[in-house]
């Protein structure tokens, strides 16, 4: 437990009677891409703001890089780069000047500005005033700002918000490359499971301020329930036949769905159905999609 790179213990934030974040225990290991997943308003941004010292926790504690936070705030924040919600920028300055306002404070070599601009692909627009940037470019400038101090931990809150498909792909590739190329640990939040699924190795799911699930992505995928679907000539009769062996078969039009059973039992069912004169057109092994897992974890019905 104590060797986690970032760890929160019973972290809680209350606004009056409303509990925005409720006793959450996040755990990030070094070089993780930790996907922080939850619907809008679940408490992701509130948690991230506490991790950055922008707001104070009501109770609970945070440890980062083995130091307690916000007690060692300065030491910790030196190693953290962040992009919270919409990107921050000074519209009247160009990209270089925007980064320079940060560089003067964190005191890194001036050459670092060109480096991060080329990482995010803004080199040729660097001298344009940011007011005229598209949302995607501002987002990339935000990432550049977050990378400027060569952080060990990068906190990205909804980094693909407002990006076009090409931008989302680019952002995803960039984030995926960070642990291997630069040894950076990433905490990336999103309300889209598909996005987290394509980047993260660890996942934390938050809803109504509480963590519902926290483990590796494989564990999340393993939780997926198997179903076996059968397309048969006379589904009603077949369902009846199957139910006489104590297996429930749900009928959707001409498809029968039964819950997961071992191979031998599948073979037995097929054999019996054929002997009873059914034609079997298809047998499909169906895993619950992550979207469905997510919905079942967060307790919402699919609309």
């Amino acid at each position: 437990m104590s060797d986690a790179f970032v760890q929160t213990t019973q972290l809680t934030k209350r606004y009056g009677s409303r509990t925005a974040v409720n006793q959450i225990n996040l755990e990030l290991n070094k070089q993780d891409i930790y996907g922080f997943l939850g619907p809008n308003g679940a408490g992701k941004t509130t948690t991230i703001r506490m991790l950055l010292g922008l707001i104070r926790p009501t109770s609970g504690s945070i440890r980062m890089f083995g130091k307690s936070f916000p007690k060692s705030r300065m030491d910790v924040l030196k190693k953290v780069g962040s992009l919270v919600e919409s990107p921050s920028y000074y519209g009247h300055l160009n990209a270089c000047e925007n980064l320079e306002t940060i560089r003067r404070i964190i005191d890194v070599p001036a050459a670092r500005i060109d480096e991060v601009l080329s990482i995010v692909g803004l080199t040729k627009d660097a001298k344009r005033v940011v007011k005229g940037y598209s949302l995607g470019m501002r987002q990339r400038l935000g990432i550049a700002a977050a990378l400027l101090g060569s952080p060990e931990l990068l906190i990205l809150d909804e980094p693909t918000n407002g990006l076009d498909p090409a931008g989302i792909l680019e952002m995803r590739e960039l984030i995926k490359s960070l642990p291997d190329q630069y040894g950076i640990t990433v905490l990336v939040s999103s309300h889209l499971l598909s996005e987290i699924e394509q980047m993260a190795n660890r996942v934390g799911i938050i809803q109504h301020g509480s963590i519902l699930f926290q483990d590796s992505l494989e564990m999340l995928q393993r939780q997926a329930k198997h179903h076996i679907r059968l397309a048969v000539s006379d589904p009603r009769q077949a369902a009846h036949t199957i139910s006489t062996w104590g297996i429930h078969a749900a009928q959707h039009e001409d498809l029968l769905t039964i819950s997961y059973v071992p191979n031998e039992q599948v073979a037995l069912i097929v054999q019996q159905l054929v002997q009873n004169g059914h034609s079997i057109y298809r047998i499909v092994d169906q895993r619950q999609s992550l979207e469905e897992i997510f919905l079942s974890l967060t307790g919402k019905e699919r609309s």
């Binding site: 010292g53 922008l54 962040s82 919270v84 919600e85 919409s86 990107p87 921050s88 920028y89 000074y90």
Partner: peptide, 9 residues
Amino acid sequence: NGGWKQLLS
């Protein structure tokens, strides 16, 4: 444009 949160983090 969110300068405070960038500056103070």
